[in-house]
Amino acid sequence: MDGLSVGSLYALIALGYTMVYGVLQFINFAHGDIVMIGAWLSFWICARLGWAGNDAPPSLARAAATLLFAMVVCGTLGFLIERLAYRPLRSAPRLNILITAIGMSLLLENVGQLPIVFGTENQGMPGLLPKETLLSVAGVNITLIDVLIIGCSIALMAGLNHLVYSTRLGLAMRAASFDTKTASLMGVNINRTISLAFVIGAMLAAAAGFLYAVKYTNLNQPAFPTWILLGLTAFVAAVVGGIGNIRGAMIGGVLIGLLEKFGTAYVSSSFKEVYVFSILILVLLFKPTGILGSARVEKV
């Protein structure tokens, strides 16, 4: 159950990597940091509104408001990052934009550490969602918070799935992802599609950050390795599922989450990362395009 809820968080984050990769064939290394910002923004707004503190009562309305706030701010941030940092480099060699993404990642971490932003102290996220155990089935504890996390992730992913596979806008996004030039000849506004991929990706990352914060409540300082590892694991999930493939990212996320938790429970928790990256190596060896990925023919 824990694996499923962690897995759905990975899936939410992996979607951002995969959508941006789909249209730009570029790994947005700053994406993991949006998750951190989403988590910290959730804490920040709660502290501002006086909802912080360990004795704060669980409240679905407050949780929803916090989630919405984090998603809107991160969505805007995602839009600005693409607009200001990546778009000017669109026609530059691929390596330039990759280095810029790593720079952006460091920038976000370090700006996050500034005293006027989030500071360098760990913080305790208020328990906005109730922690109680709903029921135990065969020794598996099903907690309300995990159910809420999974439900929230499924709702967001179902929304995205509908947008991408059943709307005109989604058709345009998929067309742009297959072939940007031809899509533009069909009247698809490529710049707008790319912005949209960044905004949606950042909003999902913010949601993952928020859910992560309410699940674990201990918020590490912005540049702490847990955040980097969280982003990296989600990136592995995107690759395992087939990078560029939206449904693949969802499957990859859940798979990695389950694997990590089962490995931790039955073998050893000190090998947590080993499971994740072993799977990455196995997938790269035997099916380099990922579970749902299709071979992309390089045009010469």
């Binding site: 067309a175 297959f178 072939d179 030039k181 533009s184 000849l185 698809v188 506004n189 299709s294």
Partner: peptide, 28 residues
């Protein structure tokens, strides 16, 4: 003007190599 504006004005371009979206259905 960007290509999507030019399409709206009424020019359609069938590119060299056809530019079919191979993973889409014919209808899509």
């Amino acid at each position: 003007l960007p290509p999507h504006k030019i399409v709206e004005l009424g020019i359609a371009h069938v590119p060299e190599g056809r530019g079919i979206f191979a993973n889409f259905t014919v209808d899509e």
